[in-house]
Design a protein around this nucleic acid. Structure first.
Ligand code: NAD
Ligand code: NAD
Lengths: 251, 251
DNA sequence: AGGCGCTTGTGAAGGCGTGCACAAATCGCG
DNA sequence: CGCGATTTGTGCACGCCTTCACAAGCGCCT
């Protein structure tokens, strides 16, 4: 993960694709994580009339502080007009370009169980710049099954198909025990981004990015806050009179 | 959200439930988010022999820095032995107590579409201290359906059932357009923690915690890194010779 | 043309989180 | 009983991120 900094050429507009292979402003990770939120808010706003949006308005729609929003957007090079706001369509274009959404990314999904089926049928992929191009499973009884227009293939074919379809992102929806093995297969096939739904840590080469979605972690964080809230609040309001350090569910 | 610090009474073991209503060490959010990871790693290690685990070993299993792990654990009050490590079962007990997992939390799920069905059938809830006690949907054709041992109820009944079952956590798996309305219903019913799968921001009172899981955001973050990697790397190794600023998917 | 109100972009300050490096503590063994 | 090996707990420094506050810039109205 080499870093690269360049103070010059701030005008890196989506229009001038000529020298577009050039370097990237190295955005803070925190900013990158928020750009998709801004993008969604912009798309929602796009329908509702106005051509421009103020940082205050967009920040409200995205649920963040307006100063933060301005700083985030300033990192990708000033596309607002003082006294007016940001041009909605231009800003959408700019953010989509930075996120690499100007090209449709090929995604494969591994593991067609409970969760895998839901993901395969999810239209949120296509509507946001991604396309599921292949489904894989190890279970012979699943291979050949047709899911949402795609035929489930055996995981052994992953290496070949990944190259054919130029797959960049792999989604793992297998049990935790199989996840590392699947990750290895994906890495061998040249996939450099992995989204992992299995509750386990994956070890991959440094050039591969892994993000994980763990339902249990989210719930446990919420549980902590419940616990804290219940232990701090004495008994004002609501039905919280029931002591927290007792049974919550019937049995 | 008042803060409270106490240097005394470091022995706040999960055993002495007598004065357990007392204050909480105000843990950093970042630490809280990692505790579930440690817990999972500990459970995995629990089966494999040894009674104690070193910070180095546990850190490796959880995929974090060992210094970070020690600092995290130190926040909940020193349960390790110098020269030896941490007692596995004791540490599990302690973390589970801090996370409020000593009691089983009642969870309800709203929206039994594609994703909702997968979540309802997920065994990762029960195995980690949660219990789905009710399912809700607005679609009359879904109400009455039996899913994984529970009957889908109409969302109008949510208020009543939430009190009956003492529901603390609500999971939203409806389309984005309905999510805010569902959140309002949950809040009115006294639910103070929400896990939101719909791609939208929810506005709730300050005492309600919301966490969101957004697939599209995760993918777009990965997409950004793909874009960056492709624009930085010239053409060494792999099959990355294909220019990034071109088509990725067939059409 | 000039002034006024509005909004962006950013300097600076403060807070939070991370990781190093080491002192303190404990165990096992001779 | 003492010593060395080992591992925890933490002081400290550094960097990232957030937030405030305000100057600079832009458009509109008179
Ligand atoms: N179901 C949910 O709502 C949910 C929610 C959050 C996380 N998860 C996690 O997602 C993962 C999948 O959950 P699920 O409920 O769909 O499980 P599942 O058992 O229903 O499905 C797992 C699928 O993976 C396939 N598989 C197993 N080993 C494989 C391998 N080596 N290569 C390819 N495919 C393989 C199986 O054949 C099966 O089809 C689990 O790790 C689970 O913890 C599930
Ligand atoms: N399917 C996935 O894999 C997936 C992944 C990530 C996020 N999501 C998100 O999760 C949500 C659900 O996705 P889905 O694919 O299951 O959609 P879906 O359309 O299949 O299911 C939505 C369900 O919500 C119910 N519903 C609608 N309005 C309601 C209301 N006011 N009260 C109660 N129930 C109501 C509908 O009757 C339906 O059963 C969406 O917001 C989607 O963006 C889905």
């Amino acid at each position: 993960m080499s870093q690269q900094r360049h103070g010059s050429t701030p005008g890196n507009a989506p229009g001038d694709r000529a020298g577009a292979v050039a370097a990237f402003p190295d955005l803070p990770e925190a900013t990158i994580a928020r750009l998709p939120e801004y993008l969604r808010a912009l798309h929602n706003l796009g329908d509702t009339g106005s051509d421009t949006i103020s940082s205050e308005g967009l920040a409200a729609a995205a649920g963040v502080n307006s100063a933060k929003l301005r700083k985030d957007l300033s990192h990708l090079g000033s596309y607002g007009t003082r006294g007016v706001g940001y041009d909605v369509t231009l800003l959408i274009e700019q953010i989509e370009y930075v996120l690499g959404l100007h090209q449709r990314r090929a995604v494969c999904l591994v593991g067609l169980g409970n969760l895998g089926h839901a993901l395969a049928g999810y239209d949120g992929f296509a509507s946001r710049g991604f396309k599921i191009v292949a489904l894989f499973d190890a279970d012979a009884s699943k291979v050949g099954e047709e899911v949402d227009g795609l035929t489930v293939r055996h995981i052994e074919d992953l290496g070949r198909v990944a190259v054919e379809e130029n797959i960049a992102i792999g989604v793992i929806a297998t049990p935790a025990g199989a996840a590392q093995a699947v990750a290895d297969v994906l890495v061998d096939a040249g996939v450099t981004s992995i989204l992992n739904f299995a509750p386990c840590v994956l070890s991959v080469p440094a050039n591969v990015d892994v993000r994980k979605v763990d339902l249990a972690i989210e719930l446990q964080i919420l549980s902590f806050h419940e616990h804290r809230k219940a232990s701090l609040i004495a008994l004002p309001g609501g039905r919280s009179a029931t002591a927290d350090d007792q049974e919550a569910v019937g049995s």
